[in-house]
Simulated scan of single mutants.
Amino acid sequence: MSAAVENSEYAPTGTVEELLQVAERMFAQQGVENVALTQIVAQAGQRNRSALHYHFGSRDGVLTAVMNRRLAPLNARREALVDALPADCSVPQILHAYAAPLAMVAIEEPWGPDYLSLLAQLTFHPQLLGSSSVEDQHLTGLRRCRRLLAGALPDVAPELLDQRLGWLRDSLVFALARWVRDTPAEARSAAALSALLDQIIIYGAAGLAAPVRPHP
């Protein structure tokens, strides 16, 4: 993010936050590639049509900023769940700490549905971030889960574990985004989401621990 964001005379915090909220909503609903920065500024009712470019440099920069502001609370949720795990935690327990924070925002946060839609786009098209990257400090919970899974699955080679965890991550994102898309807001109950999450965890635990078939 440009140092210009810190200039309160040019970039009031409320203005930047509003621009990012509008960007998130438009990216989610219209598709990242279909939204120009000038459209976001106009939708937010800002007069300075170059405001987003000034603050973030490009659409990639705006998208990265949107991701970082949501990854921070998600990471805090995940860290708290990992902290609460027992010393001899099982793979399903670790996967619950891994997946539940992302699942719960679908019904607990007003931005959750849009964020999941946006995350699904990025999962399918990671190039949308361009050369930008999310802040490393927001990924600590995911890394702790990865280390715990490696300890709980000593017979799974590290490279294979990473590959399988990548498949699980993609499945989780698409399953949650599809659930939000196909489930009316009034039907998105905690019970329904919990049932979906339980099935994803059962599926993920089985997949991570599956035996390796030797090549013929």
Rank of each mutant, 00 (worst) to 15 (best):
189 S>F: 11
131 S>T: 14
98 Y>C: 03
98 Y>V: 00
144 R>K: 06
135 E>Q: 14
121 Q>D: 06
84 A>M: 13
170 D>S: 13
200 I>L: 15
135 E>P: 08
192 A>T: 05
185 A>M: 10
161 L>W: 11
207 G>L: 07
76 A>Q: 15
77 R>G: 06
100 A>N: 09
195 A>Q: 14
103 A>L: 00
99 A>E: 04
86 P>S: 14
120 A>I: 01
181 R>Y: 13
209 A>H: 04
205 A>K: 00
174 F>P: 02
114 D>R: 01
163 Q>P: 06
125 H>F: 12
84 A>D: 11
139 L>N: 06
154 P>W: 07
142 L>M: 10
112 G>P: 00
205 A>D: 01
131 S>N: 15
177 A>R: 01
135 E>M: 07
203 Y>N: 13
99 A>Q: 08
207 G>W: 10
172 L>N: 00
96 H>T: 09
149 L>W: 02
92 P>R: 03
205 A>L: 07
79 E>Y: 06
75 N>R: 04
94 I>E: 03
80 A>W: 10
145 C>S: 01
94 I>S: 00
110 P>F: 12
103 A>Y: 08
201 I>C: 02
96 H>Q: 11
101 P>A: 00
124 F>W: 14
118 L>W: 03
122 L>E: 03
95 L>H: 08
194 S>K: 13
155 D>R: 14
159 E>C: 05
175 A>I: 05
115 Y>D: 04
147 R>K: 14
109 E>K: 05
95 L>T: 05
97 A>D: 05
74 L>F: 05
83 D>R: 09
132 S>W: 13
144 R>D: 06
143 R>V: 05
131 S>L: 13
142 L>R: 07
